[in-house]
Structure formats: structure tokens, C-alpha cells
Amino acid sequence: MFIGHLPGAYLFFRTATPKLSPVVFAAAMIGAMAPDIDMLWFYFVDNRSHHHHEYLTHRPILWLGFLIFGLILRKWSDRVGSIIAGFGAGGLVHMVLDSIVGSVSWAWPFSDAAYPLVTVQATHSHWILSFLNHWTFMVEIGITLLAAFVFWHRQRKTREPEALGS
């Protein structure tokens, strides 16, 4: 995914947990983007030697660990535990979205096997062009447009009572 992580996570959390507190929702949105922080290592340290999905930040067990730790922590601190759990859940949403056209090792550390749901063939001179011209990118655009519509609609709904009262 190039543009779909944040919009996809937005749609998921707005649909699955519509009453999520703003702070936990923000943690989930940050978590949905956090796995790609490894791109800094990929470009500036590793010199693109390994695909960034091979780094720890793209191992679902890491995000599952955050989620479980947060859920356990809620027993003592509901707010902090919920934030950590939201962050982990966002990371897991990222992993699911990456699994569509990317390779994610869901069984790691027991297995490195990783198979994308859809394989994007190298049809252009650069891999980015191949992705941008693949039908799955149109799905990403659709997800992004739908998320923008939901966001806009929610903003409009929250402003309506204000307009009625004035």
C-alpha cells in the first residue's frame, strides 16, 4: 500500500469501534502508520539491502504484543492500556493491509514464509510504476476516497447541531 494505510485504518476503526475515545483513536492511527518507520532504516542505514517487510516493525507478533500488553495494562490503568492497545491494533491493521500485495510473515518467529494475497507483476521499468498501474492501486484510491467522504460526513454531522442552535 502506498496511500491506503491511514484511510484504511480510519475506516476500520470508525466502523468497528465508533465510540473510541479521541486519544485512543489517535493512537490507533499512529499505530497504522508506525510500521513504515522502518523506511528510514531501509534508506539511510541498510542501503536498501533487505525489503523493509523483513524488519521487526513488519512482524505482526510485535503489534499483537502491543495489543495484548495494552489490554493487560488496562486492568491497572485504563487510559494508558487503551492507548497502547489502540496503537497495537493500528499496527495489526497495517499488517493486514500490507498482506494484500506485500509479503508479511504472519507466523514469524516460527516461519519466515510470507505470501501476498495478490502478486503485482513487474510490468514497468520501476516497481513503483508497476504498483501504481496495478488494479489494486485503484482499490487504494477507492478506500482513500471513501475515508475522505466518511470524514467529511462526520465533520458535517458534528457541526449541524451547532448551526441549528445559532
Rank of each mutant, 00 (worst) to 15 (best):
R48V: 05
R48G: 00
R48N: 09
R48C: 03
S49T: 14
H50M: 11
H50L: 13
H51G: 15
H53Q: 05
Y55N: 09
Y55K: 07
L56E: 03
L56R: 05
L56K: 01
T57S: 15
H58I: 13
R59C: 12
P60A: 11
P60D: 05
P60L: 06
I61E: 11
I61A: 11
L62E: 08
L62R: 10
L62I: 15
L62F: 12
L64A: 15
G65A: 13
G65L: 09
F66R: 07
I68Q: 05
F69H: 05
F69D: 03
G70T: 06
L71T: 13
L71W: 12
L71Y: 11
I72L: 15
I72A: 14
L73M: 11
L73N: 07
K75T: 15
D78M: 12
D78H: 11
R79S: 13
V80N: 01
V80M: 06
V80C: 00
V80I: 11
S82N: 11
S82A: 15
I84N: 03
I84Q: 02
A85I: 10
A85P: 04
F87Y: 05
F87D: 05
G88P: 09
A89N: 05
A89T: 10
G90H: 06
G90V: 05
V93S: 01
H94V: 08
H94T: 07
M95Q: 07
L97C: 10
I100E: 11
I100H: 07
V101I: 04
V104W: 09
V104H: 08
S105N: 08
W106Y: 05
A107I: 00
W108Y: 14
W108Q: 10
P109K: 01
F110V: 04
D112W: 01
D112V: 06
D112M: 08
A113S: 13
A113Y: 08
P116T: 03
T119R: 02
V120Y: 02
T123D: 12
S125M: 09
S125E: 14
S125T: 10
S125A: 15
W127C: 02
I128H: 01
I128D: 00
S130N: 02
